[in-house]
């Protein structure tokens, strides 16, 4: 049996890894010319913060997100396990109380404790939440690492290979994100915009989430003075242009976290749409011989490990997964 995995973003590569390790024959195809910005995974933040997600996400996201750290630790070269921090500007401190109430596994810390964790932030913030068990990764490196591991298993990713030009040899797993829209009618795109900044004036070592009235803003350190600032969340399927307003929002957030970001170099402006179902929860569903795994929304790197495990389980031995499958699964 050869299983074809369509889509070499984080979901496709995680499924490929999971199946390859179980000794299943697979092929991976992707219509893009290579690893890069064609997949929305490219612009992910890479936070592995299941507990923080409880603020605005449903319980399965929190539950299955907890599988992420150990899975990534096993499969890629670097997972930074230093926790994450949630901050609010003093005018929004009520938001921090709400966040604390709605989430678990955190500690309220004062300015002194914050100074020990992130000295550069203590001047501007005197109160924060610390989620010690959370972690972060560099998504681009993670995608490269998974690709390389697959090569070690003898699996090469066939780029420039659209599904329509491909003769499948058996079951197919479709992990093409928003591109599967034509097959999955209730899939929608939610636009996200992000910036990559560089500054050596400050040193932040773990993801910082800033309470923001409209969308969760975060800064994720990528090493060597680079930081990912993301991400807007707009009900739009336009995937190529960032608006001035979004840019202002993101830069304002960065500037609020530390004024030195005002002098940072803008390395990259990223924009894409994340695939989401109406309940913003991922789904596995069968269409003929194809298993769709889609709708990871803002949680690609957080939920890919659990979804990959479920996809592998169900394709080898079909079973019902209540959290991520509809009643009418095959």
């Amino acid at each position: 049996m050869i299983i074809t995995i369509v889509g070499a973003g984080v979901m496709g590569l995680a499924i490929a890894t999971e199946l390859a390790e179980r000794g299943v024959g697979i092929e991976v195809i992707d219509q893009a010319p290579g690893l890069g910005a064609h997949a929305c995974s490219w612009y992910a933040g890479g936070m592995l913060s299941p507990w923080c997600e409880a603020d605005m996400s449903e319980p399965p996201i929190v539950k299955f997100g907890q599988e992420a750290v150990s899975w990534w630790r096993k499969h890629i070269s670097k997972v930074t396990e230093r926790g994450s921090i949630v901050l609010a500007p003093s005018r929004d401190s009520a938001e921090l109380n709400r966040f604390a109430r709605r989430t678990q596994n955190h500690k309220s810390i004062d300015g002194n404790a914050l100074a020990e964790l992130e000295p550069d932030l203590a001047e501007s913030f005197s109160k924060a939440l610390y989620f010690a068990d959370e972690a972060h990764i560099n998504p681009r490196q993670a995608l490269r690492d998974l690709s390389e591991k697959l090569l070690n298993h003898g699996i090469k990713i066939h780029y420039d290979t659209p599904l329509k030009d491909y003769v499948s040899k058996g079951k197919i797993i479709n992990a093409t994100g928003f591109n599967a829209r034509i097959k999955l009618q209730d899939l929608r795109g939610v636009k996200g915009e992000a910036l990559l900044l560089k500054t050596h004036e400050i040193n932040i070592t773990r993801p910082i989430r800033l309470m923001h009235p409209r969308f969760p803003v975060y800064i994720v350190p990528r090493g060597s003075g680079t930081y990912m600032i993301g991400a807007t969340q707009i009900e739009s399927e336009e995937r190529s242009k960032i608006t001035a307003r979004s840019m202002v929002d993101l830069l304002n957030a960065a500037y609020t976290i530390h004024p030195a970001f005002g002098e940072a170099e803008v390395l990259e402006i990223g924009c894409d749409v994340r695939p989401a179902f109406p309940d913003n929860i991922p789904k596995l569903c069968w269409q003929g011989d194809t298993l769709h795994v889609n709708g990871l929304f803002r949680h690609g790197f957080l939920l890919a490990p659990a979804c990959a495990r479920m996809a592998a389980d169900t394709i080898l031995n079909p079973k019902h997964i209540p959290e991520f499958m509809d009643e009418n699964y095959r």
């Binding site: 929608r188 009900e235 739009s236 399927e237 242009k241």
Partner: peptide, 17 residues
């Protein structure tokens, strides 16, 4: 309605909902 979405009708899926 964000004018950005309005121009390209890129918010249509959400508006249909």
């Amino acid at each position: 309605l964000r004018r950005e979405s309005g121009e390209a009708k890129s918010g249509q899926t959400f508006w249909n909902m």
